[in-house]
Each structure stands twice: as C-alpha cells, then as structure tokens.
Nucleic acid binder design. Sequence first.
DNA 1: AAATAAAGGACTAATTAGGTCGTATATATG
DNA 2: CATATATACGACCTAATTAGTCCTTTATTT
Lengths: 134, 134
Amino acid sequence: MLKITRKVEYALIALSQMQLNGDESLTSVKEISQQNDIPYELLAKTMQLLAKAEIVEAVKGPQGGYRLKKDPTDIKMTTFFEIIEGPMGFMDCSFDSNCHQIRSCSIRTPIQRINDSIRNMFNNISLNDITRTT
Amino acid sequence: MLKITRKVEYALIALSQMQLNGDESLTSVKEISQQNDIPYELLAKTMQLLAKAEIVEAVKGPQGGYRLKKDPTDIKMTTFFEIIEGPMGFMDCSFDSNCHQIRSCSIRTPIQRINDSIRNMFNNISLNDITRTT
DNA sequence: AAATAAAGGACTAATTAGGTCGTATATATG
DNA sequence: CATATATACGACCTAATTAGTCCTTTATTT
Ligand code: SF4
Ligand code: SF4
C-alpha cells in the first residue's frame, strides 16, 4: 500500500549520483545504470520524464548525458512523485474511477484528511533532503 | 504508490457502520455488503482478519454477525493497516527482498526517515478518527 | 433437521509495476 | 561526412500484486 516504486528509487539514486558528480558535469544513463546495477532502459525512461519536467537537462551525442537544471532544494517531493508516477499518485479512495455512492460514504472525508496530511508532509520535504550526499 | 486498498476501504466502511449500529448489536457481513455494494466474499475475508486480530468479535449462526471488541480509539492506524495488509505494508525501498548493494546505497537512510515520519503520523491517528460517525 | 452466519482454502481475473525492444534523432569527433 | 554515442519515445511483454469468486467446513439458532 505504501512502497516507493522502482522508478522513483532509480530516479533518486540517479539524482544523488549526479549531485555527487557536480553540478556542471554530465552524467550518462549508461554510467548510472552500470554503477548501480539498474536496468538501462527503465532508467533511461525515467530520466526522460525528469528531462521533460526540466528537473534535468539532456545533452545528446558522445560525452553527452544529463545535468541538473533546477536546484533540488526547490523541488518538493510531491512534485517529484507526480512527475514520475503521473498526477494523483497520493493516498485516496477510488472515488474518481467508479464509485457511485460518494454522497453516502462516511469514510471519505477522514480519508481525505489523511491524504492532506501526507501531501502536506511531502510538500515540506525537498528533493535535496533525499539526494544530498553531504 | 500511495492508495488505500479495497480491503482497507471495505474494513473501514464496515467498522464505521458497526459503530453506527451501536456497540452491543451484531452486524452481519451480508448486511454490510448489501447496503454498501461491497463484494460479500471479499468483505467476509477482511472481517475474518479483524476477528482474528480481535478488533471485532464474531458470533456464528442465525442472527449472528460481528460486534466491536476493542475500542476503536485505542487502535492505531498503523496496527490496523498491518492487520489487513500484513506486516511491512509501509513505505520502504526493496532492501529486504533482493537488494545486494545496501551498504553502498546513498538514498536508503533518507527514505527511512520519510518512512518513519509516515509511520509516526499513522501512529497518531486512531481507527476511531476515521470511522467515527459523529 | 434446516437455515444462517462465520472460517478458511483454492482458484481466477484484473490491474499495476517492472522490464525489454526497436527505431528515430541529435551531436561530438576523427 | 561517416561513425559512434547519447537521448527520445512508442510498442510490447512479463512479473507481481490486488481484487474478486467459488466451494467446503463449522458453529449455532430456531
Ligand atoms: S465508497 Fe467512499 S471510500 Fe469508497 S470509493 Fe466511494 S467515496 Fe471513496
Ligand atoms: S538499499 Fe538502496 S539500492 Fe537497495 S533497495 Fe533500498 S534504495 Fe534501492
């Protein structure tokens, strides 16, 4: 019910390593996948998500790779999760999909309260809090 | 990554309804499943988990059903989740299953910090906070 | 005895997560 | 300019987890 997914884990590892390599230097998917024993293709896709969200910047061609584009300190974990897992992503009931008894449901409101608390918590944790190496 | 499961949802609805029916009276799975349009068998199993954990008490035979055994105020949500979803259940990386690079992993500790925060949060929410009807 | 309700095991279906493959595009460098 | 190398991206497959069903047993009331 509450486990980080591989894609999130891989992205965190990648960013952590990129911070280690320094803000200016480029880090390739190959490098990260080999050093951390992460499936290349999957990591590649994940990095593409981060690139599209402009968390990182891609440089193609030989000696290419990724470098940080935004300061990890400025990225909330909520944002980060949603970049990788798509919108929603957070604790909620299935009211969106097919629930036909929303109005009569007694537990929805308290569940949403929990949801809000979790969101709030992840809003106050920055990407840097996880990936910083110092 | 963070959505309550059906079993948890069903259990919460059931307990909520039982509280509504009063502490002494018996509520049957049939009754709950019909009134809330929940698959009978699945709810039955879930109730059996709660019975085994002595959250509720089962009474067999005609006019039987379940009644609360413990005060929902005294049950932490962490406990509740783990009764239904089994141990672990909470946010963590996959270090337990097959990770062979635990010692070199840089993100594990911060992930565990998050894990602890979430656990802590759910330790401070009681079942009653969700299921109370007042 | 018959009906009713929980207990529980075995199984199937649906959904999601995890991973692979093939191809296109950009670019540094000899 | 050819080649090697890197990201981009869509289609696809597989594994794992969740959700749901079926069937038999056991206890208990009437
Ligand atoms: S019944 Fe309530 S908890 Fe379940 S999906 Fe609908 S609104 Fe959400
Ligand atoms: S310890 Fe690190 S590498 Fe291993 S599963 Fe956890 S996050 Fe992944």
